[in-house]
Design a protein around this nucleic acid. Structure first.
Lengths: 253, 253
DNA sequence: TGTACATCAGTGAACGCGCGTTCACTGATGTAC
DNA sequence: TGTACATCAGTGAACGCGCGTTCACTGATGTAC
């Protein structure tokens, strides 16, 4: 604790840098090999070290994986939040579309990390991280929820297309105090929108839309996200109207 | 070829039975362990054989995996088709809901197989099977498409909520002669519906909706699927109206 | 119907490999007087 | 400021394990005359 006013703890910085480098190298290798498998041997080789050295930083191969999963959750959440916040607060629909686009781009850029989060859970990796992850796990969803809550608080949400909420679902929502600002109808609509976004993203990220042209994939995604916005009651901003409104619905075009 | 009129080729039947048992055992193990990894050693042990014996049936561990993936595609396609066909032809929306429910139940029952199909593709497994799988791969989608094509041919499709189809997407659809019976708008709507269905199914199958009660999950799924039906222009059948219509929309309840 | 041969399922032993992990040790970096 | 000690990153050798795969062989099942 004497280090507070003392010199910068070089060792700790070096240590943190190495931890980061290990994780970055792991991701790099996953990216190259297209798998979520990581070998300590490979990481060490790429870093110009010997495998045992990694045990100074991670007690276990599992511990590294847990760290990678946690990072992935945070990265995705940050990407979504950043894209959302880059759009004017008044443009509710624009924010949703930007956030959804970030969700997609992140998944397309890093399918392995996306798979770490949303793929088949490996037994022993999801349960033990209960602590740090219950909060981290839902970060992407939280960012979407925050957006809905914000819009809801400001009275900017239209009623969603589905206006009835089954009791069982209503009860569940009520228990999540984190989302207490959102009307049950809108919360339900958000879940529908998220599922829709997640579906198109998963399909594309894992190559199931490869038979389409890239432009067609873009168009399909945008259509999916706009449809979700519409059914969820996210209003288009006046300023953004030109890009958001369906051309065919505009009289005189 | 003399066996046509001759006795039943017992050896071949035994052989086919063993192949089936190997695949079934592999699935069993994947189910138990919660992984998509399969070890020849384990399969052999469970079957009361020695590992080398399996090489009589599969040249490779990879060959077994390819077979399992192909089977999974077919199983899912069959399940969807069967559920769809169990509903009256006139009840377009009911057929969709049944098919979607089968998609979901299959995924919940066999998350590992679902992951084999729709998870992060393992390099070397998806590409080499180009032959038997290009057709098999899209079987679930084909079953959904067949449903749309059928309804479309009979003039039973309403216009979907999204009526404009971007040119890039329109061109893609035109190239798929398999789907030539469907209007581009409806084809696009089908893709949106599929993505929506796939999203809610993936999230639930991989445990991302575990914080909800089972009944709430059921309700959310049904809502998602109904919403998709509505936006895709799938009409409710008169007979099925009682179960399909939103209770709150029925006067006097 | 019976005998001689071919086919094929399955065994048991063994090879080879690569990976996770441990451990004693070295050399450099930081700390205390 | 300098010296003595503690801390810690990284090495190199080695262990253990388990798995995929090969191969020569056995015994049973089917086939041809």
């Amino acid at each position: 604790m004497t280090s507070v006013a003392g010199p910068i703890p070089r060792r700790e910085r070096a240590r943190a840098a190495t931890v980061d480098e290990i994780k970055a190298t792991a991701l790099e290798l996953m990216h190259e090999q297209g798998t979520t498998d990581v070998r300590f041997t490979d990481i060490a080789r790429v870093m110009g070290m010997t495998p045992p050295a990694l045990y100074r930083y991670f007690a276990d191969r599992d511990e590294l994986l847990v760290a990678l999963i946690t990072d992935a959750y945070n990265d995705l959440g940050d990407a979504v939040a950043a894209a959302r916040d880059a759009v004017d607060e008044e443009d509710i629909r624009g924010r949703w579309i930007a956030a959804a686009g970030a969700y997609r781009q992140w998944a397309l850029r890093e399918p392995q990390q996306f798979s770490l989060i949303f793929g088949l859970p490996v037994p022993g990796f999801v349960a033990p991280q209960e602590g740090p992850t219950t909060e981290a796990a839902s970060r992407a969803l939280s960012q979407l929820a925050a957006m809905f809550a914000d819009a809801s608080r400001r009275g900017r949400l239209d009623p969603p297309l589905v206006r009835t909420v089954p009791d069982s679902l209503r009860d569940c929502v009520a228990e999540e105090q984190k989302f207490s600002d959102i009307a049950p109808e809108s919360f339900q609509a958000m879940l529908h929108a998220w599922a829709s976004l997640h579906g198109i993203t998963s399909l594309e990220a894992y190559g199931h839309l490869d038979w389409m042209d890239p432009e067609a994939r873009d168009a399909l995604f945008l259509g999916q996200v706009r449809l979700a916005a519409q059914t969820a009651g996210l209003p288009a901003d006046r300023d953004a109207a030109a890009t958001e409104v369906d051309p065919a619905a505009v009289p005189g075009t």
